[in-house]
Design a protein around this nucleic acid. Structure first.
Lengths: 152, 152
DNA sequence: CTACATTAGTTGTCGCGACATATATTTGCG
DNA sequence: CGCAAATATATGTCGCGACAACTAATGTAG
């Protein structure tokens, strides 16, 4: 049997946590949307940009699909089909790996490199999204989000 | 011209914020996935559940598509097609509004109500996702996420 | 060496967010 | 009243996450 105070406490407890759930979803969706707008002029989605940057990071060395997937911000994503779109636009190259014919060798094309360097120039505008939090607040947020996820 | 210390500070600044961006995306994706798993046994997606709960909240009064969309956790979402799927499963009813023939009257069906009450019974399991944060931490998170988004 | 398991990728399906366009109905202005 | 703007919804396209099924190539145990 609950008394009234207990019930109110319980309700508040649940409400604050529901608010947090909604808040997290909203924040992610807000961030994604700001991101999408930033990349739109380059006709890239954030995921496509992510793949290009990973390939550039490998310099000359070709990368397998596997390797790209593991480095993606969003794992479990259909990296294969994201690369299909980059292929269509001529921003990456794909060819069969000589030593293991199951694998594909992925590299970024010159055209892809050109787009990335254009983007680099405007990156600072993007980074300023989070200017309204100070260093301590950023650290606190990181810490609490980690704590939230590392349940058990 | 930067000196080395300035550059390091700058890099740390950007890295912490990039980490936060990734962290927010991961947290949202983690929460969505826990949520999806919870609703899977009822053959509902979180969005479909959200629509059903909104309709139940209206009790007997029919709700227009507009009204449902506004109350959704995720606005801008294609509520019409989410409702199509609920219609297919017989969980909602849709009919033309008498006084304004552009509008549709949406109500939850008995079958829909039954599923919701099943879910109600197991809700506490769901709420426990956030047990590893205490009240103060939940409040801090809510506050910081709001501050982050309310840029300008 | 053969049979089977494992691995790398491809392809298909569903649900959905974002966005653009289309259509019907109502409203409101002259 | 008549016609244009506003409103409510429907429909189509793209990109993508989650997931399942499939194919081809390689590794491995007997």
């Amino acid at each position: 049997m609950f008394n009234l105070n207990e019930e109110i406490k319980q309700t508040e407890f649940i409400n604050k946590r529901q608010e947090l759930a909604v808040n997290i979803l909203h924040t992610a969706s807000w961030y994604k949307s700001v991101n999408s707008v930033f990349f739109k002029p380059y006709d890239l989605t954030p995921n496509q940009f992510n793949v290009l940057r990973i390939l550039r990071g490998q310099k000359l060395k070709p990368c397998s699909l596997q390797m790209v997937s593991e480095r993606m911000v969003d794992k479990n994503s259909n990296t294969g089909r994201i690369i299909d779109r980059l292929l269509d636009k001529g921003l990456v190259n794909r060819c069969e790996n000589k030593s293991d014919r199951r694998q594909v060798d992925l590299t970024i094309s010159q055209k892809g490199l050109n787009i990335l360097s254009e983007i680099d120039d405007n990156m600072p505008k993007m980074s300023s999204i989070m200017d309204n939090l100070n260093d301590e607040e950023v650290n606190t947020l990181n810490h609490l989000l980690n704590k939230l996820k590392n349940k058990k």
